[in-house]
Amino acid sequence: MINSERTRTAALVVVSHVLSVDDISDLVGCGPDRSRSKGSVRSGAVVPIPAKETSWELCEQADRSVPLSNLLDRLSEKVLPLRGSFVGLVDAGCAFKLTLVQWISEADPSGPGFWLDADLLKFLAEVGASVDVDQYVV
């Protein structure tokens, strides 16, 4: 089991102020790994603030023994075959971001780095995605 507080994560997040999770799933042709509907409140939230937008994501997670680059490769295998559908979401007003979370320690077997291949970079540029990298040293 993965310790959710110390996982490595690579996720493509689609955000919409207009489309629902179901709408995005229909346009993409598959369901999300995680999602949050506009107006919903996160379970366990200390302050119950409703989401301002819908978020839909495909994600790969693993413990710290798995290099972040491996997660990016697996995410690419999910995302790139759906490239045309995601580009269509841009026309529907959706925004995209690549979210990366990496926990790092001196004992880390794979080191603190990661790499993005050319196909993934081209896709991210096509959809105008931002990149959010959170790295934590433990």
Score class of each variant (00 low, 15 high):
Leu58Thr: 00
Ser65Gln: 10
Lys78Cys: 06
Ala129Phe: 02
Pro81Trp: 03
Leu116Ala: 13
Leu98Phe: 04
Val15Gln: 07
Tyr136Ser: 14
Val14Leu: 01
Asp22Gln: 11
Asp91Cys: 06
Lys38Arg: 14
Glu106Arg: 09
Leu19Asp: 05
Glu106Leu: 09
Arg8Tyr: 13
Val46Gly: 05
Ile104Tyr: 11
Glu126Trp: 03
Gly111Arg: 13
Cys59Pro: 01
Asp134Thr: 15
Ile24Tyr: 02
Ser16Phe: 12
Val79Gly: 05
Gly39Leu: 07
Asp22Met: 02
Leu124Met: 10
Arg6His: 15
Thr9Val: 15
Asp132Met: 03
Val41Gly: 01
Val13Ile: 15
Ser110Met: 01
Gly31Glu: 10
Ile2Asn: 14
Leu124Phe: 07
Val66Ile: 14
Ser20Glu: 02
Gly88Leu: 01
Val137Tyr: 15
Val131Ala: 08
His17Thr: 07
Glu57Gly: 03
His17Arg: 10
Leu58Gly: 03
Ser65Asn: 09
Asp33Cys: 02
Ser85Ala: 12
Gly39Met: 08
Ser16Pro: 12
Ala45Asp: 04
Phe114Val: 12
Ser69His: 10
Val13Arg: 14
Val87Arg: 09
Ser37Met: 04
Leu82Gln: 11
Val13Leu: 14
Val79Lys: 05
Lys78Met: 10
Leu124Lys: 09
Val21Met: 04
Asp91Phe: 11
Thr7Lys: 15
Lys122His: 13
Val133Tyr: 05
Asp22Arg: 07
Leu124Ile: 08
Gly93Met: 00
